[in-house]
Design a protein around this nucleic acid. Structure first.
Length: 464
DNA sequence: TTGCATTTTTT
DNA sequence: AAAAATGCA
């Protein structure tokens, strides 16, 4: 006799290469459950863009499950409590999940083990990363702090496993637990215009993820240069799909490699996901705490001052007077995503030129990115700010104007800052300097030289 | 301990 | 050419 299996889903919303699903299917009838949990993550509950994505991803997953004779059970509240309750009421013998390494999920997994008691087993599977986080260590057995040696150690263990197929059929229980209605969760924004743009831009769900992979395979060899050119469509745009687990990194790895091509630069980028997990496993508080604690005394401009909040507000709205920064921030607001090269420029501008604490920027990205990921977002913000374990490069202050020219961002600016659309290169990168600033476009918040010198002076204060 | 290395840079 | 500190073998 086989007993009910609970499949507890979080950021692993796929049917293929899903080890928790495979294990559940082999053991008995499966009840797939997703819990919308705004309690467990505390202040890290999903932001607006992530919620939009989640809505569509869950809808797509439910449709996929129904094709296989199953369905998705939706509940909201404390995930550990609810999953335990469902498991007990269904008389389940096991709960299967994919492990997640955000500190709140690690806690919840521990709590769930206790709540399930002796009769129900919690089986945690790995599968959202190329190697199990924590398994890649230095010669002396410590976790890596620096990316390059981490990459070398991990890539020596590649390729990953062959991706597992979608199960033919997912056995259903005789009785389904009660489920909420997705539409009642209010995950979609009240602004219909924004939702319209998002729907044009993205197809959440496993099928959409596969489509992005297909579209990127032929571009992957150009990635080494293409990743720096925001005007061109040469990046994978897989980040939100990977974040929500709609596709496994092992599948992406296998699709991109082979055929004797060199796609190393892209693979390195993919491995940054693994690296970021390796960091938050060492430093669970990485999202809110400087890894280099001398930065705790850094003289950030005081956010209680209305002038500083006003500058921050202009940054969020893409009104800084720096076209490349503004284009990026407006792309983010419109589409829930920003080209990575521009993310670096925009982040550097907030931290160095505006001298605003990186945590304010990270918070904004957390709310507005549809790929918002605790590990990746924190690691990248701390990398730019120089507060991270992996860099001490505060004095690397990106020059937004030369970056804009260097990476040929003219068309990118034309697309996202329409009031500058009529300007030719090179004027469009710095209209103020060339005396071509249209009236509708703001003056620079702070001059480049002035901002740079202020940042260097602030850095000196914590050096001694 | 030593020596080499460190995602994306700047002037 | 310099910035500049610490990880890693």
């Amino acid at each position: 006799m086989t007993k009910i299996q609970i499949l507890w889903l979080r950021r692993d919303l796929r049917l293929s290469d899903q080890p928790a699903l495979m294990a559940a299917v082999q053991a008995g009838p499966v009840i797939p459950v997703y819990v919308l949990d705004d309690e467990t993550p505390k202040h890290r509950k999903m932001g607006g863009a992530s919620r939009w994505w989640l809505h569509h991803s869950l809808k797509a997953l439910d449709a996929r499950l129904r094709e296989k004779g199953s369905r998705l059970i939706l509940r909201s509240g404390n995930a550990a409590n609810i999953v335990a309750d469902i498991a007990h009421k269904a008389g389940a013998s096991a709960v299967h999940c994919i492990r997640h390494y955000e500190p709140w999920w690690r806690n919840a997994e521990k709590e769930l083990t206790v709540l399930l008691g002796n009769d129900v087993e919690l089986v945690r599977h790995d599968g959202n990363y190329l190697k199990r986080p924590g398994s890649i260590t230095t010669g002396s057995g410590d976790p890596y702090k620096i990316y390059t040696p981490f990459w070398k150690a991990l890539s020596a263990q590649m390729p990953p496993h062959e991706p597992a197929p979608v199960p033919q059929k997912i056995p259903a229980p005789d009785e389904w637990p009660v489920s909420h209605n997705l539409d009642d969760w209010g995950l979609l924004p009240t602004k219909p215009n924004w939702a319209g743009v998002m729907e044009q831009e993205w197809t959440p769900g496993e099928v959409g993820a596969r489509g992005r992979v297909d579209a990127f395979v032929d571009k992957a060899t150009q990635y080494d240069e293409g990743r720096n050119l925001p005007s061109r469509e040469l990046v994978s745009r897989l980040s939100p799909h990977l974040h929500f687990g709609e596709v496994s990194p092992a599948y992406v790895w296998h699709r991109m490699t082979g055929r004797g091509r060199d796609v190393t630069t892209y693979l390195k980028e993919l491995v940054w996901r693994d690296y970021a997990q390796n960091v938050i496993l060492q430093y669970p508080e990485y999202g809110g705490k400087n890894a280099r604690d001398k930065f705790d005394d850094f003289p950030w401009r005081d956010f209680r001052s209305s002038e500083v909040r006003y500058d921050f507000d202009r940054w969020t709205k893409g009104q800084t007077g720096y076209p490349i920064v503004d284009a990026g921030m407006r792309e983010l607001w419109a589409t829930g995503w920003m080209h990575n090269r521009v993310r670096m420029i925009a982040a550097s501008f907030l931290i160095k030129h505006l001298l605003i604490d990186w945590r304010k920027g990270e918070e904004w990205f957390w709310d507005t990115l549809c790929d918002a990921d605790y590990a990746s977002n924190s690691v990248n913000w701390q990398w730019v700010s120089g507060t991270g374990i992996d860099s001490n490069m505060f004095v690397r202050i990106m020059a937004p104007l030369s970056q804009s020219e260097k990476f040929d961002a003219g068309d990118y600016i034309r697309k996202w800052v329409p009031e500058l659309a009529d300007l030719d290169d090179p004027y469009i990168h710095d209209p103020e300097e060339f005396g071509r600033k249209p009236n509708g476009y703001p003056a620079k918040i702070v001059g480049h030289k002035q901002g740079r010198e202020r940042a260097l002076a602030a850095y000196k204060e914590i050096k001694g």
